[in-house]
Design a protein around this nucleic acid. Sequence first.
DNA 1: TTGGTTGCAAAGGTTTTGCAGAGTT
DNA 2: AACTCTGCAAAACCTTTGCAACCAA
Lengths: 153, 153
Amino acid sequence: MEQRIEKIKQQLQAQSYKLTSQREAIVRILLQNEKDHLSAEEVFMLVREVEPDIGLATVYRTLELLTELKILHKMNFGDGVARYDLHTENSEHHHHHLVCVKCGAVDEIMDDMLGPIEQKVEKEYHFKILDHRLVFHGTCYRCTGLPKPDHLI
Amino acid sequence: MEQRIEKIKQQLQAQSYKLTSQREAIVRILLQNEKDHLSAEEVFMLVREVEPDIGLATVYRTLELLTELKILHKMNFGDGVARYDLHTENSEHHHHHLVCVKCGAVDEIMDDMLGPIEQKVEKEYHFKILDHRLVFHGTCYRCTGLPKPDHLI
DNA sequence: TTGGTTGCAAAGGTTTTGCAGAGTT
DNA sequence: AACTCTGCAAAACCTTTGCAACCAA
């Protein structure tokens, strides 16, 4: 935890940004909820328990800054709010999402599986791929009563 | 064109909705711009040339209705507006998008390619897939100076 | 002192909603 | 008449921005 905060601090300072107490509190919230995909409002609610005087605008500005620095992924599941996801060491380009249409849960697949498809796309569509987003909509194991898959965290 | 309008009319009437002149004008705009991914505002601008008195709210309500009836796909490329895509006979579950980070162009891949991945996901993650969204971000053939791929429309 | 940073409030942009009137069946 | 549908305006929402005060190097 402290290590990862330190790393982010360095990434900020490398561009002469500061890790203020507000920013640190936001990052800690993101680290503590790494499995979730929090919206700005959700981060705001959580961070307020630690930094009661923080403003919503600061949360938005911090999330935007962290997104620019590629520390966060900003994404959109179609529910009208942007959601954010911490980049962990090896998750950058290699995870997908399962969005349950019944309960709204969002699970992550840590397996990329798109390699062959990307090769085909680059070759057949002359498109240089930088990133991808793959989201499956359907019914999760909780809602179908199936056991929790071993592959999920 | 007329055939497809007729079909949509029937789909509406099956649920006792009407194909009013405003709705028909909107559907015609969508049919005429099938390759694009229009936003509500863009549909509004185009449809106003035909139905000058139409209101923006009607456009939103119609797009929502057509989405509920699965005639349209509502999607989100992260630019702050929802975009809509007509379901053609065989495109329903089987096309992806290439979003160019340089020029903003959105091209379509008509090839599904996800079959094997979906099987794996259903099996390993106990997730019953109803739909998927796959978007690649990168540089398109126009911006890299490559020839137009045969696979694109 | 010079910049970056913050909270607040206001503004911006997209989408939804309330309502009375109009149109259909 | 009952019901859907429409346009308008207002509201609701999420997000961004202007600004004066604040803080750290």
